[in-house]
């Protein structure tokens, strides 16, 4: 999402204006000479039907770095692969007259269908938790805005946690706190996991550069994930030409049923 970048800058400005930190940060803000560059070998990934998940490698470089700080390992990088967004409904079951029934639900607005995070270190150790949270980096800080009326909001935390847990267990939300490695002084390589059930659509690769716990620069690149193969052709037909698909399914059944009765009668 393109608003994330300006928003994170706003967050940074807000942090800057906090009196206690102002002096330290102000100097650093003006000092920033670093630039972040990233690249992927392809803008489009075609996924075949036997796809079982893969690692996507993203290369990047820090320009205008401070050699001293680099040597001390003060530069940290976080790379996130964010899938296409959709509304997601979390439902909760409760026992009603002895049976388990979905009783409550909450819909979160436009959450990513997949999210893989990779970093040089655990993100909590890269920058203050509040900054990371303000920038919305990581599954724990993902913005989960409920849609519609949620009552007094007391169940909000519970539903958010359930959502994160389920998405992480199913493998579509992942984190790898050692996935970004420096391959030379300022060149780095990031491996981001594409889960087996990676959704179709435009994914966004976001890279964030931190210097000594302070956010310095960010860069984003789009990545198109296209599923290919027979299965994908079937899925597309089912959604784009549903009537023809339905007629085909019925024809297949008629031919199979009739064919079998003809075949076995001859014997």
């Amino acid at each position: 999402m393109r608003w994330l970048l300006p928003l994170s800058l706003v967050a940074l400005v807000l942090a800057v204006t906090t009196p206690a930190l102002a002096q330290v940060l102000e100097r650093k803000v003006t000092d920033f000479t670093e630039k972040l560059e990233i690249g992927i070998s392809t803008e489009e990934i075609a996924i075949t039907s036997d796809f079982r998940g893969a690692d996507l490698t993203i290369f990047g470089a820090i320009d205008g770095f401070d050699a001293n700080l680099l040597a001390q390992g003060k530069y940290n990088i976080i790379v996130a692969l964010e899938g296409p967004k959709d509304n997601a409904t979390v439902r909760k079951k409760e026992r009603v007259f002895g049976i388990w029934v979905n009783t409550q639900s909450m819909t979160f607005e436009l959450v990513p269908e997949a999210y893989s995070l990779s970093s040089t270190r655990a993100i909590e150790t890269i920058a203050p938790r509040r900054d990371i949270a303000n920038m919305g980096i990581g599954v724990d800080h993902m913005r989960l805005v409920p849609l519609g009326f949620v009552g007094d909001g007391s169940s909000l935390g519970e539903f958010r946690n359930a959502f994160r847990t389920i998405r992480e267990t199913s493998g579509v939300y992942q984190r790898d706190p050692g996935g970004v490695q420096f391959i030379s002084s300022s060149l780095f390589k990031a491996s981001v996991r594409l889960p087996a059930n990676v959704p179709n659509g435009i994914h966004i690769v976001r890279a964030y550069l931190f210097r000594d716990g302070v956010f310095v620069a960010a860069k984003a690149l789009p990545l198109r994930v296209v599923k290919t193969g027979l299965e994908q052709a079937i899925t597309r037909a089912a959604h784009d030409q549903p009537l023809i698909y339905g007629l085909l399914a019925v024809t297949l059944a008629v031919v199979t049923g009739w064919g079998a009765s003809l075949l076995f009668r001859k014997e």
Partner: peptide, 25 residues
Amino acid sequence: VIVQASTNYTVDIVLAFVLMIAGVI
């Protein structure tokens, strides 16, 4: 089948085909 396919997109032709081949035999 036709109405389910066009409103709910839930007819799995691969699953159906495997089932019906084994079923008729």
